[in-house]
Write a protein that binds this DNA or RNA. Structure first.
Lengths: 207, 207, 207, 207
DNA sequence: GATGAATGAGTCTTCATTCAT
DNA sequence: GATGAATGAAGACTCATTCAT
C-alpha cells in the first residue's frame, strides 16, 4: 500500500512531521478529554504549524482516530510480546503485557485507554483482545453470555490497573496478574449464571 | 429564617422552573458528553429562556453538577428501596435496585452513570456505595486490596448493566443479579491475591 | 411640586427606599465607572430588590443622573456654607467648602466628581459654580476667554484636590486654598492673553 | 533571530492588517468610551473578521492598550518635532506640538487623551511629559509641590485645549500657547504656596 | 510540504428591563 | 410599593478549518 521506502527527502520529512504530530496528539488526548484539546495544542506540542493537523489528518477528529489506532497497535504488540506455550501462562503473559504497557504510559493509560476507552474508537481494540482471550479459554466469543462476561471482566481489570497506577503500584505485578485471573474466573462463573447452558468448567481449568 | 417549603405561589413556580431545568439538564447530559451540550439546548428542552440556566445554576457547569447530584440521590434511593434482613438478600436487593433504576433511565444509565461515571462528580456516589457494600460483607473499605477489588467489581458490574441495556436485556434480572454476585466473588478472591493476609472467606460466605 | 409631607406611611416607606437606593447608587458610581456598576450592585448595596431601581429611577441611567444631581446639591451646599462679606475671603471660603466636602467623600471625589466630572451630567454643576466665581470676580462668564480660563482653572484645581486626597493630604488646607488662588490668577492672566481686550486687573485685585 | 523587518510578503500583509486594526481601534475608542466600543465595531471599521482582534491583540483590552500606546508615541513625536535652543521657546514649541497634534485628531483628542487621559493607561505619557517640562524649568519633578503644580497645570491646559477644539478654535494658536504659559506660571506660584521653601523665581524666569 | 493569517460559526455569560404576584 | 423570576439582546472569546504564499 504505502511505498515501502520514502522516495524523496521531502516525503521523508513529511512522514517525520506526521509522526511528530501523531505523538503530540497521543500525548494531548491522553491528558484531557477530546473537547479540551485544541488543534493548536497538538501542533504546538509537535512544534509545527497548526494547519498541518488538517493537512495530515484531515482535521481534529482524524488526528484523534489516528492516535487511537496508534495506541491500539502499540498495545497489541505489547500483549503479544511473549507467546508461551501453555494457555494459563499465555493468558498471564497477555495480562502482564497489558499492565506493563500502560505502566509505561500512565497518562495514556488513565485517559485514552481506561476512560476514553468507553468511546467508539476503541471498540475494535477491545473486541479483538477479548476474542483472543475467548480463544485461549476455548469459549465462543459470540455467545452473548461469554461476550458480556468478558467485557465486564475487561472493565474491572482496567479499573484495577488504573487504580494501581494512580496509587503508585501498591501491589506486586504478579499479584495483580493473579487478581486479574480471579476476577476473570468470577466473570466466567457469572456467565454461567446468565446462561446456565454454558459450561465454563473447562475454561476455568485453563486459568 | 427561611421556611423549609416555599411559602408563596411564586416561589413554588420558580422551584418548578428549576426542576424543569434540572430535568432537562439531566436529559441532555445523559444523551451526549458535556462539551456537546449547550446551555441553549438545556433551556430549550425546558422550554424557558437560556438566561435561566445561569440564574438557577450559575452557569453550565453548575447545571451539570446539579444534574449529577440529582442522579446520585435518585440512585441512592433506588438502591435502598428494599431493606431485607439477611445480608445475601440485602446485597441482591441493592443490585436489583441499581439495575432497575438504570433500566428505567437508559440514556442516563449509558452516559451519565456508566460513562460519565468516571468523572470526578461521581466520586462521592461510587465511594459511598462501595462502603455500604463493604459493610455488608464485613470488610474494611479502607484496606487497599478491598477498595481495589470493590472498584474493579463496580466497573465490571456497570459494564454488565450497560451491555444488558444496550442489547435489550438479553438475560433475566435474577440471572443478572447472580452474575453480579459471581463477579463480586471473583473480585474478592482477587483481593486475597493482592493481599494474602486478607481473609475473604467470611465475606464470600455472606454472598 | 412634591407634597411637602408624605401623606401615608406607605409613601414614607417608599421615600425611604428611594433614599437608600440613591445613596447606594452614589456609593457604587463613586467606586467605578458607569459601565462596571450593575443595577443589582446598587440594589444589593441598598438591601432591596433590583427591580426597584427601575421602579424609582426609570432604569440605570436615571439612577446615575439622580446620583449626580444629589452630589451637585450636596456640593453646592458645602460651598455656600460660609458666606463672608469680603470677596477674597468669600472665594477662599468656597474653595475650602469644595475641598472639605470632597475630603469627606473621597471615593466620590476621585471618581464621580473629578473623573466622571468630565461627563455631561456634571455640566450643570460646573457651569453654575463657575458663574458664581465669575460673579465674585466681576467678570462676564459668557465671554469666551473668561469661560475658558475658568474651566481650565477648575480642572487644574480638581486635579490638585484629587492628588491631595490620593497622597493623603500632604499640604495644609490653607496652603492648598492659596495654591488654588495662584492657579486662578494664572488662568486669568491667560484669559488676557486669549483676549487682550479683556481687563483682568480688577479681578486679580479681588483675589 | 527574528529579523527586524518582516521578510516575506505575508508577514508584511499581516503587519498591515494589524495596523488597520490598530487604527480602527484608535478611531473607535476615540469616539466613545471603552465599554461602548465592541470588538466587532473595530473589526468592521478595519474591514476584517472580528476574530482578528484577538489574533493580533489578545482581546479587546489588548487592542485598547495598543491604541493608547500608539497615541502616546505619536503625541511624543509631535511634541518633540521642534527643538529650539532657548528654553522659553522650547516650552512653547512643545505646547504648540501638543495642541497641533490634537487639533489634527480631534476625536482622539476629546476622548482618548483629554477624557480617557484620566485612566491608568496614560499615566506613563503624562508623567513623562511633565518630567520633561520640569527639566526645562530647572525643577525637581519628584518634589511633591512641583509634581502637584505640574499636574494641575496639565489638566488645566488640556481643558483649555479641549474647549478650544470643541468651540472651533476661537483663539489664535500663539495666544493659546501664551495662555498655557500664564496658567503654568500660576501653577508654579501655587507650588510656592504649597511649599514655601521652594523657589520658583528662576523657573518663572525661564517662561 | 509547511506556514500562520484570516474567517466566522458557535458558545457562554452578563445584565437591564419587564411584570405577575 | 416591593419582589425576584423570567426574558432575550448583546457581546467577548474560542477555535476548527481554509488557503495564499
Amino acid at each position: 500500500m504505502t511505498p515501502e521506502k520514502p522516495l524523496t527527502a521531502r516525503q521523508a520529512a513529511a512522514e517525520q512531521t506526521r509522526r511528530k504530530l501523531l505523538e503530540a496528539a497521543l500525548a494531548e488526548f491522553s491528558r484531557r478529554p477530546y473537547a479540551e484539546v485544541t488543534v493548536s495544542d497538538i501542533a504546538r506540542a509537535a512544534g509545527v504549524a497548526h494547519g498541518l493537523v488538517s493537512h495530515h489528518f484531515q482535521g481534529k477528529q482524524g488526528a484523534y482516530v489516528a492516535a487511537v489506532a496508534e495506541v491500539y497497535e502499540q498495545l497489541r504488540e505489547a500483549e503479544e510480546a511473549e507467546q508461551p506455550a501453555a494457555v494459563p501462562e499465555r493468558i498471564r503473559a497477555r495480562f502482564r503485557g497489558f499492565v506493563t504497557f500502560l505502566a509505561a504510559h500512565p497518562d495514556l493509560a488513565l485517559n485514552l485507554v481506561l476512560i476514553g476507552g468507553r468511546d467508539e474508537a476503541f471498540a475494535g481494540l477491545r473486541s479483538r483482545n477479548l476474542r483472543v482471550l475467548a480463544g485461549l479459554l476455548g469459549l465462543d466469543p459470540d455467545r452473548p453470555a461469554v461476550a458480556a462476561a468478558l467485557r465486564s471482566f475487561a472493565d474491572g481489570a482496567e479499573r484495577l490497573t488504573a487504580d494501581w497506577l494512580r496509587d503508585d503500584r501498591p501491589f506486586e505485578l504478579p499479584a495483580l496478574v493473579e487478581a486479574f485471573c480471579a476476577l476473570l474466573a468470577g466473570a466466567l462463573r457469572g456467565a454461567h449464571e446468565l446462561d446456565p447452558a454454558l459450561d465454563v468448567t473447562k475454561a476455568l481449568a485453563r486459568l
